[in-house]
């Protein structure tokens, strides 16, 4: 399979003014400013294959948005090389923009006082679509994203969920091969989040669009992504499939057990997360003990009425990443 994105040794440094606290320091800074170099992205390399849905995960300030901006040609890299659909995003930015779409959750490309239909029509013109092509594309996207009922209402009167659906539709107006989504589900409720996820999956399936997604939402990552890249302090700290992330990387299982007597268990590698009368939630460290051994041990002590074995929730995996668990 061809690579949609290929990044090698990418580094981005920013120069930031250093200022101590207080008015005197401000005056000193004015006369003799001091700068320090911040490495927002440090020597990262990865590939994304065509048609893939990739999660790009990391805590705030990890370098996710900077990396997207480097890949899309907004920022110039300090060093390293980037190839997107075989193009250099910095020397061929204009040409590349016909083939990529972007949604920055915090930045809108819709006119606030006008209905989305006007902004979508303008976007069609910006991407050199004919009036007929634009009309057909808007009809298609309105159908998929269910925009018909509010396409003619001013954006300012739309709910956040409706607005984000319009934003994504706008970024797909020119049928891009790659869609960059930077925290698209920020601020949405669970129902709308699920809807957005379904739409992303649909567009990936129907148009074979490669999806590059950054999100803090465990559900986004778990339910729609196949692979993940984890970035922290600007460096790539983990790369693999979501399945690997859950099964291998976090070498733990959760056992929820209901028993006929109160359960007291003290085995190395087993932690009681919650315990209430005849029910307990245990976290098993697989490197220390197997699930089978733990169940056998429980059965020796009490009778089991019900038992569920599950993986550690994605929420916890992400929380661990953010706390530096993989760094």
């Amino acid at each position: 399979m061809a690579h949609a994105i290929e990044v090698n040794g990418l580094t981005k440094e920013f120069s930031s003014k250093v200022k101590s606290q207080g008015f005197t320091a401000s005056v000193k800074g004015l006369l003799a400013p001091r700068y320090r170099t911040i490495r927002a992205v440090q020597d990262i390399s990865f590939c994304v294959e065509e048609g893939d849905i990739l999660a790009f995960i990391g805590p705030n300030g990890a370098g996710k948005s900077t990396t997207i901006k480097l890949i899309t040609g907004i920022l110039f890299p300090t060093s390293g090389s980037i190839s997107v659909l075989g193009m250099n995003p910095h020397t061929q930015r204009k040409h590349l923009s016909y083939h990529i779409g972007t949604v920055f959750g915090q930045k809108s490309q819709l006119w606030y006082h006008l209905p989305p239909i006007d902004s979508l029509t303008l976007l069609g013109s910006i991407y050199d679509l004919s009036k007929k092509q634009t009309k057909n594309r808007i009809e298609f996207l309105a159908g998929i994203f269910e925009l018909e009922t509010f396409l003619d209402q001013p954006v300012r009167k739309l709910s956040l969920g409706q607005r984000i659906r319009c934003e994504i539709a706008g970024s797909l107006i020119h049928s891009p091969k790659i869609l960059f989504l930077d925290e698209p589900s920020i601020g949405l409720d669970v129902v709308v989040k699920q809807r957005i996820r379904d739409l992303i999956l649909k567009i990936n399936k129907e148009e074979k669009t490669t999806i590059f997604l950054t999100s803090h939402d465990a559900g986004d990552i778990e339910k729609i992504c196949k692979r993940a890249l984890v970035i922290n302090h600007g460096a790539l700290v983990w790369e693999g499939t979501i399945k690997d992330m859950k099964y291998s990387l976090l070498n733990r299982r959760i056992i929820d057990v209901k028993t006929d007597q109160r359960l007291c268990i003290d085995i190395p590698g087993v932690k009681t997360v919650k315990s209430k009368e005849y029910a307990a939630k245990l976290e098993v460290e697989l490197s220390a003990v197997s699930v089978e051994e733990v169940i056998q041990e429980i059965m020796k002590r009490v009778g089991i009425k019900d038992i569920t074995i599950s993986n550690v929730p994605m929420e916890e995996i992400i929380s661990m990443i953010y706390q530096g668990g993989f760094a």
């Binding site: 948005s65 907004i74 819709l110 606030y112 902004s119």
Partner: peptide
């Protein structure tokens, strides 16, 4: 070439 972008929340009016 010196553009540093940013994360300011914005809308087009």
């Amino acid at each position: 070439k010196h553009y540093e972008s940013g994360n300011r929340i914005g809308a087009r009016m």
